[in-house]
Write a protein that binds this DNA or RNA. Structure first.
Lengths: 422, 422
DNA sequence: ACAGTTTCCCGTAAATGC
DNA sequence: TGCATTTACGGGAAACTG
């Protein structure tokens, strides 16, 4: 009868950070006849939770009781909005209830709302509760918490299975890929296309022609590290989402970032293009990095690929990405620096693509000479110091595969509309 | 009989930020005979303060009572250390006690410590209190608070004149300049020399041959804005101190930053130097900025001065200052970029001075081409767009003044030893 | 509307617990 | 000792409050 709205984090509901306010709203969906008394709602955190179920206990620091009010804008329903603060209980001596296998972001909690009223001598108790909640103490835990919220809501319809992560089910790749694309379209304004998802699938499963039937375990998704890397799949993907949100929104929304492309694919795509053709790709080796790779022809006509050291949030906050692309220069042995980036893959002239996004700041501080930072790479033309990988052999693919991939990987700018386009 | 040590802020004692822990220590300087009972000390904030004296009231959120203990390391004195949190009292309806003329950083408070013990049937009350304290709620108020602490401790010996800023005395320039130099030597490792102080004095008083007799009012020091600028003298100076602390420590400690030089003086100094001679100076127009000015000769032999747009903390955190000096380039109409900085004033070859401070980071992220940011200015050789001030007339000084100043302004690297030199 | 002041809270660093 | 988690708090921005 009552429908609780969820506590809201900045865009991430169902995650509560201790010591930071969150709001909840409870609405009474039935209209009560002639209510001229006050209807009080009481909030309880982890009401009647079986002991030992969670390892940490929390309590609401603020007023947990409030009177319902008629919503002004809507149809006269009763509702109440709380603004709460959560704090961890200090388990005085001894062993916070164990359940030590689960990490804090897998530990599910819930908020309960209770009200009681009397009509015609009849006492009626109302009670409702939230979907499972994750409680964190630092924003650094937010990605992990959000992974849990996604996994739970993707894989169960149970409203309150707090033991979910005791034995979490697997997700099929078709389910998961949809959710991942969702994340990008919700938080960055543009989802993932088929080719990008294919690369992500291959990252999880290895090279398989079709992985839509594959199952991903919770652990593989967000707990265990990618082989050879110090982070899990989701941590990596989320770091990219954050990078886009903070530094790449317009470029992402214009669909100029291919982003998720394997290095093999990248070369296959650039191989036959005009020298100076480049594409933008997220780093697979570091969290939250973006790089560009361009193709050029060596002295004896062979194809060479170069990728710049990935830009991370620190660099990008000193210099917007579009400006990096505009100003990037390579110096070879003292020759006049030149910008090697000419065409955004497949063949869009750089300035045509990025022109609107440049950040021309002539900065007229009068007595001073304006100055800016420009990104630069120094290369010895000496072959021995040329990055080795640029000369590595062609990717192991058949020509047929090439063609197919090539066909699928062209940008389709009009397929998804962007809320950020101007 | 008890000597309280002051609450410590990060390097700034006597300033307390609400909601942030501070520590105090009280020591009993007399040895008590045969004390086998516990001596409790109680802390009170603003004990028996006359009402209306302050506009804000605070209270100690944490335990305010603790038992004294024998100090292990020293001579067996009793002492106790508190770790406190301060919070503002919510003045329920009505007018926090006024005194509206004073800003929060001028409002002085105090901590009292009390203890009581009985010896041979005789009850003895002990009480002591701190020097005046400033309470702030955000670090943005720290410079203002520190100005108050400096002014108070410079100009009075009274231990507890909480009304000090009702009518604050003036400081003589000789007193004040000493304190300012102190700030730099305490917080940045190297104080201010005579020439630097002279420039600061002129900033406060205008051009006066000797300003050591001049009096500075509290308002002129830290409350009223410098004419034509949106900040006061101290806010400006403190912004520079912060810039040094965070981004310029080694360069400052090597005495490579002349820093406080008027533009007139700067030209007088550079005028006859080798082209490419430069000096480092703090911005007078913006908070926390540093620039370099170099001299060069125009086509028809006239002397030209150029100053780069000042670097502020944002830019400097993307690129260390020494690297900026190393890599700075000017592009004129597509000509090969060149670094115009050759000699640090008076004639130290750039790399000899800054070589050790360069931050050579080849960044071997293997498959990638290393990239770095370099600072660059673009100049049209077209005279109409050359910054106007570069062609302004010579400073209004007599040749005699020149000589004197020139003589005084050479760097004396060995005069002050630097705690940061390696 | 506005300026001075406080609150809010992210994000890094340090501390703590296990 | 190392990893997981929490605490601490600077710093930018929003919210407050006369």
């Amino acid at each position: 009868e009552k429908q609780p709205c969820m506590p809201t984090h900045p865009q991430k509901p169902l995650i509560i950070k201790t010591g930071v306010q969150f709001t909840t709203k409870v609405r009474l969906l039935v209209k009560l006849p002639e209510v001229d008394y006050q209807l009080k709602v009481k909030t309880t955190f982890d009401k009647d939770l079986p002991p030992g179920r969670v390892s940490r206990q929390f309590f609401i620091l603020t007023n947990n009781t409030k009177v319902m009010d008629i919503e002004d804008y809507s149809n006269g329903c009763l509702s109440v909005e709380f603004r709460h603060l959560l704090k961890e209980k200090k388990y005085i001596n001894g062993t916070k209830g164990n359940e030590g296998l689960l990490s804090v972001t897998e530990e599910l909690h819930s908020l309960s709302f209770e009200a009681c009223f009397t009509v015609q001598g009849l006492t009626i108790d109302l009670e409702t509760c939230s979907l499972p909640l994750v409680v964190i103490s630092n924003v650094s835990q937010l990605p992990g918490g959000w992974a849990s919220v996604m996994w739970y809501n993707l894989l169960t319809d149970e409203p309150r299975n707090l033991a979910f992560f005791g034995n979490p089910p697997r997700a099929s790749w078709s389910q998961l890929s949809e959710v991942l694309s969702w994340q990008f379209s919700t938080f960055a304004g543009r989802g993932l296309n088929k080719e990008q998802l294919t690369m992500l699938g291959e990252k999880l499963f290895g090279q398989h022609a079709s992985c839509s039937d594959y199952q991903v375990s919770w652990s593989k998704f967000s707990k265990e590290n990618i082989p050879g890397k110090p982070f899990s799949f989701w941590m990596w993907l989320d770091s990219i989402l954050e990078l886009i949100k903070k530094h790449l929104l317009p470029v992402w929304n214009e669909n100029y970032i291919m982003g998720f492309v394997s290095k093999e694919m990248e070369r296959a795509l650039l191989k036959d293009k005009e020298p100076g053709t480049f594409l933008l790709r997220f780093s697979e080796s570091h969290l939250g990095g973006i790089t560009f790779t361009w193709v050029e022809h060596g002295d004896n006509g062979e194809v060479k690929f170069n990728s710049v050291e990935p830009y991370t949030k620190n660099r990008l906050s000193a210099l917007p990405f579009a400006d990096i692309i505009r100003d990037y220069k390579v110096i070879s042995d003292g020759v006049v620096p030149e910008n090697p980036l000419k065409f955004l893959y497949p063949d869009i002239p750089k300035d045509e693509a990025f022109g609107r996004l440049y950040n021309s700041q002539p900065s007229k501080v009068h007595p001073y000479i304006p100055s800016t930072l420009i990104p630069i790479s120094e290369m010895r033309s000496n072959a021995s110091t040329t990055p080795r990988s640029c000369q590595s052999p062609e990717p192991p693919m058949t020509p047929g595969e090439f063609d197919m991939l090539n066909e699928h990987l062209c940008f389709d700018i009009d397929t998804m509309s962007s809320p950020y386009s101007e």
